[in-house]
């Protein structure tokens, strides 16, 4: 890690009381957080929770209607031009031109950041090699697989050596293997170059790989912390029980075991210090009533359910 920069002590991003309204609709209702250098910070939340608005503001696409955002000490509302050269933005939709080759895309990007000539050529080649795209450099982007296109997208953004990456749902449309692969690349980038990464996601496994996670719900950060601490806030194991009549069964379980059971998407959710024993007790206590039951260590989705009373996705996915 290179920690020798003079402004190293300033947080990469400081956001205070950030609000944004579209007409009468409040998309962000006072969001406050800060991200340190080299941190991977994920915003987890359902669609409509405010993630996209936050992304647009952090990526300098849109000025906030209230509150303040400072990136490397610069106020985004007035000094976005000072921030932009140090910022790399990965959009949810690809920003690669499919008609152009991978190298051509990277060269155009470099030109936009004031790089040219031999310096840009060698930077482009180095970045492609770094991301393992060297042998696809002169292929048109449209011939690449989804996973490789995503990696090329990241390569493009890295051409100008940004210190902060802001990414909107970066692994959208990737299969689990490609997603894992993309994540490894991000971690390596953080280790090697101390890049700060802010990303939005609605995928649990993507969020769990972040150093810290902020849970966004209805324009507010309802929780923030490292994934383990957040998961620790859920008591013990999470037991999920499917029954023919979950509401009724919830009442009975409360009477019998004195535990809090909530019905979410037709299934009973119970927090219990010892999941496997509880499952056996429930099955014994209500013979024939339990269709199926699972238990496990809490995930960030369980944290989200505990905080908001609903699942991240409204349908079982």
């Amino acid at each position: 890690m290179t920690k020798a920069r003079t402004d190293m002590d300033i947080p990469a991003v400081e956001v205070e009381g950030l609000r944004h309204t579209y007409g009468a609709r409040e998309a962000l209702a006072g969001v406050t957080f800060s991200a340190m250098r080299g941190e991977i910070f994920g915003f987890l939340g359902p669609n409509g929770g405010g993630k996209t608005t936050l992304f647009k503001i952090l990526s300098t696409l849109m000025p906030p209607t209230g509150g303040s955002v400072r990136v490397f000490g610069h106020d985004l509302a007035h000094e976005s031009q000072a921030v932009r050269p140090r910022l790399g933005v990965v959009f949810q939709h690809p920003s690669l031109d499919p008609q152009l080759t991978v190298t051509e895309n990277l060269m155009h990007h470099g030109h936009l950041y004031g790089l040219w000539g031999r310096a840009l050529h060698s930077r482009t080649r180095a970045t492609l090699d770094q991301l393992g795209l060297g042998d696809r450099a002169s292929d048109p982007v449209k011939t690449l697989s989804g996973g490789l296109q995503r990696r090329a997208e990241l390569a493009k953004v890295l051409v100008h050596r940004p210190e902060l990456l802001v990414m909107d749902e970066p692994s959208t449309g990737l299969d689990p293997g490609a997603r894992q692969d993309f994540n490894t690349v991000l971690r390596r980038l953080r280790e090697q170059e101390n890049v700060t990464i802010l990303l939005t996601t609605h995928l649990i496994d993507e969020a769990e790989q972040c150093d810290r996670v902020g849970v966004l719900h209805q324009g507010r950060l309802v929780a923030m912390g490292d994934p383990d601490t957040l998961k620790g806030s859920v008591g013990g194991d999470v037991v999920v029980i499917w029954a023919d009549n979950p509401e009724d069964m919830g009442v009975k379980m409360r009477e019998r075991f004195g535990c809090e059971a909530s019905v979410i998407d037709g299934a009973l959710h119970v927090e219990h210090p010892c999941g496997h024993e509880f499952v056996r007790e429930v099955v014994d206590a209500f013979p024939g009533a339990v269709k199926s039951a699972t238990f496990g260590r809490p995930t960030l989705e369980d944290v989200f359910i505990r905080l908001t009373g609903r699942r991240l996705w409204s349908h079982n996915a």
């Binding site: 932009r84 939709h93 690809p94 493009k156």
Partner: peptide
Amino acid sequence: RREGFLQAVLVAPV
């Protein structure tokens, strides 16, 4: 501008 190359141009220092 919505879902292509121009998105990235809009956040570049130009």
